[in-house]
Amino acid sequence: MGKSNSKLKPEVVEELTRKTYFTEKEVQQWYKGFIKDCPSGQLDAAGFQKIYKQFFPFGDPTKFATFVFNVFDENKDGRIEFSEFIQALSVTSRGTLDEKLRWAFKLYDLDNDGYITRNEMLDIVDAIYQMVGNTVELPEEENTPEKRVDRIFAMMDKNADGKLTLQEFQEGSKADPSIVQALSLYDGLV
């Protein structure tokens, strides 16, 4: 993909415009910024974590950033290329609610087996709590990752089998306004 070129080839721009919710001009602008920050044309896990640390200076986002990195890194080569970056950004910032929920499901399904187990969710929720640090005051019933996961599973795990399917996750998330709101945070920002 033209590693350190400051412009993408027209056919690449066209393809990314088809695969995302961005215009050709927006794709070019994002590429310019991506190459400025990642001259090699790729972003590794350490660089990704560094970006998260800028956004969450009062907590430790390392663990959460690693989980997000793994979802962005579609081809699992340990690096995020621009096409992976822009497609994930498109879903998280401008995707439909169902697209965002499928993306979030992939984030929580750490072993990619098609289910979110209690332990997988606990890993992610714990990482989120570490990331936000003491900057967020949580209600008593959610002031630990374990309590939050218990509440989520009580609401979403309809067949009580200890794991969530994509359908259970989507339906449960849509029924909880706070989850829908959290997924909409990026709307309109890009």
Rank of each mutant, 00 (worst) to 15 (best):
G2A: 09
G2Y: 00
S6I: 03
S6H: 01
K7S: 02
P10R: 12
P10A: 04
E11L: 01
E11F: 00
V12L: 14
E14S: 08
E15V: 12
L16W: 15
R18V: 13
K19F: 14
Y21A: 07
F22Y: 12
E24N: 04
K25W: 15
E26K: 15
E26F: 02
Q29G: 08
W30H: 03
K32M: 13
K32R: 10
K32H: 12
K32C: 11
K36A: 13
K36E: 09
D37R: 05
D37H: 05
C38Q: 00
G41Y: 13
Q42C: 05
L43S: 14
D44Y: 07
D44E: 13
A45W: 07
A45I: 00
A46S: 13
A46P: 07
G47S: 13
F48N: 01
I51M: 06
Y52V: 07
P57F: 02
F64H: 00
F64D: 03
F64V: 10
F67V: 09
N70D: 11
N75T: 09
K76N: 01
R79C: 00
R79Q: 15
E81G: 10
F82R: 10
S83L: 07
I86C: 12
I86R: 04
L89F: 08
L89K: 13
S90G: 15
V91P: 15
S93G: 09
D98P: 09
D98N: 06
D98I: 03
D98F: 07
L101C: 00
A104S: 08
K106F: 00
K106I: 11
L107W: 10
Y108Q: 13
D109Y: 03
D109C: 02
D109S: 05
G114T: 01
R118K: 06
R118L: 11
N119K: 10
E120A: 01
L122R: 08
D123P: 13
D123S: 05
I128S: 05
I128K: 04
Q130V: 13
T135L: 15
T135F: 14
E137R: 11
E137K: 11
L138D: 04
L138R: 06
P139L: 08
E140I: 06
E142Y: 06
N143H: 08
N143G: 07
T144W: 06
E146S: 09
R148N: 12
R151W: 11
A154F: 08
A154Y: 00
D157S: 07
K158C: 11
N159I: 02
N159H: 02
A160S: 09
K163W: 07
T165S: 08
Q167E: 09
F169V: 11
Q170G: 11
S173A: 06
K174R: 14
K174G: 13
D176L: 07
P177Y: 14
S178M: 14
Q181L: 05
Y186C: 10
G188C: 00
